[in-house]
Design a protein around this nucleic acid. Structure first.
Length: 306
DNA sequence: AATAGAGGCAACCGCGGTCCG
DNA sequence: TCGGACCGCGGTTGCCTCTAT
């Protein structure tokens, strides 16, 4: 009946990963690709639960992860997307391809929550002298929020991805550590980064870019669909978020590439796959957010826009 | 210099949906 | 068809470091 358990709970190691374990995991994934996590601990000789391996890979070891301080742009996007989507960290992370959902979640909980709370309380203070918010003010605020949300999505779409895969592997930078903080794991991180970089270079298809990524491990490449109308060119759904740019001044969106690497090999398996999204939900959202930009456009019948 | 409290973050836990034997 | 494992995700915990006293 059923499948055998992924790992026997006895003898499964917990806690922080050692550099050696990281190297073993990276080496194994390098050879076999991510996926089939239940087989990895056994085959790689790791005394870890498959779940732990997947998490370690997704949150720390996979190529393309940007570490260190969040930029102002990233911060704004997180705030606005959180307001839009709620605590859907995986969804939010799909807009920030170089950040993991765990990172975003942590950053939200430790920094942004407080920041917003302070902002709100200072706003409340400024309002305390006046009477309660009027209907007109409320509507204005709502409109502002909607505009902010729209801007967030535009920002997301105009996010400029780096074009070269090797650029995605961050070299260890002193800025990754806090001032004065002894970063005992630095050398290991650096080694892993180098290892991964080497991996990228040595891959059979070494001309890997973010737009031509090997999805062969497990995921299927979302078939590119092209919509072209009114100067708008798309190769995939908005939420596929491949390599795209959006120029609000001339209403031109250009997506290239046949699939979002974020949904596949480069970024583990937790990212949104456009083909798996609820078309009604997302297209409604897209419609709402990009109403101004998109209302004039007619789409291919394959598009399930409401 | 020692210590307590706060902050940051990696990793674990538990749940719901999906998949497989 | 069904039971149970796998997978992905969000919430939470616990450890380590920093800072204030």
């Amino acid at each position: 009946m059923g499948r055998p358990p992924c790992c026997d709970k006895v003898g499964v190691k917990k806690g922080p990963w050692t550099p050696e374990e990281d190297i073993v995991l990276v080496s194994y994934v390098k050879e076999h690709g991510p996926g089939n996590w239940r087989a990895i601990p056994k085959n790689a000789g790791l005394h870890r639960c498959s779940k732990s391996c997947r998490l370690r890979w997704a949150n720390y070891l996979r190529p393309g992860i940007k570490r260190g301080n969040f930029t102002e742009h990233e911060e704004k996007m997180i705030v606005q997307l959180q307001a839009l989507l709620g605590n859907k960290w995986a969804s939010i992370a799909s807009y920030l391809p170089e950040r993991t959902d765990n990172d975003i979640k942590n950053y939200w909980n430790t920094h942004l929550k407080k920041k917003l709370k302070n902002l709100q309380s200072s706003n409340l203070d400024s309002h305390s002298t006046s009477h309660s918010i009027t209907r007109g003010q409320w509507e204005m605020k709502l409109q502002t929020d909607i505009n902010m949300a729209k801007q967030a999505l535009r920002d997301a779409l105009s996010y400029q991805n780096t074009s070269n895969f090797t650029e995605l592997i961050p070299e260890f930078k002193p800025s990754d550590t806090k001032p004065g903080k002894e970063f005992t794991y630095a050398s290991s991180t650096e080694n892993i980064a180098r290892l991964l970089k080497q991996w990228a270079i040595n891959r059979p298809n070494s001309s890997i870019t973010r737009n031509s990524v090997d999805f062969s491990a497990r995921e299927s490449i979302p078939s590119p669909c092209t919509y072209s109308n009114s100067g708008i060119k798309l190769s995939e759904s908005l939420f596929g978020f491949g390599s795209g740019s959006f120029d609000s001044s001339n209403s031109e969106i250009e997506f290239t590439g046949s699939g979002s690497p974020e949904a596949g090999y480069l970024h583990g398996e937790s990212k949104l796959d456009p083909t798996e999204l609820d078309p009604v939900h997302l297209s409604t959202l897209e419609n709402l957010l990009l109403d101004d930009q998109w209302k004039e456009c007619s789409f291919d019948e394959n598009l399930d826009l409401v």
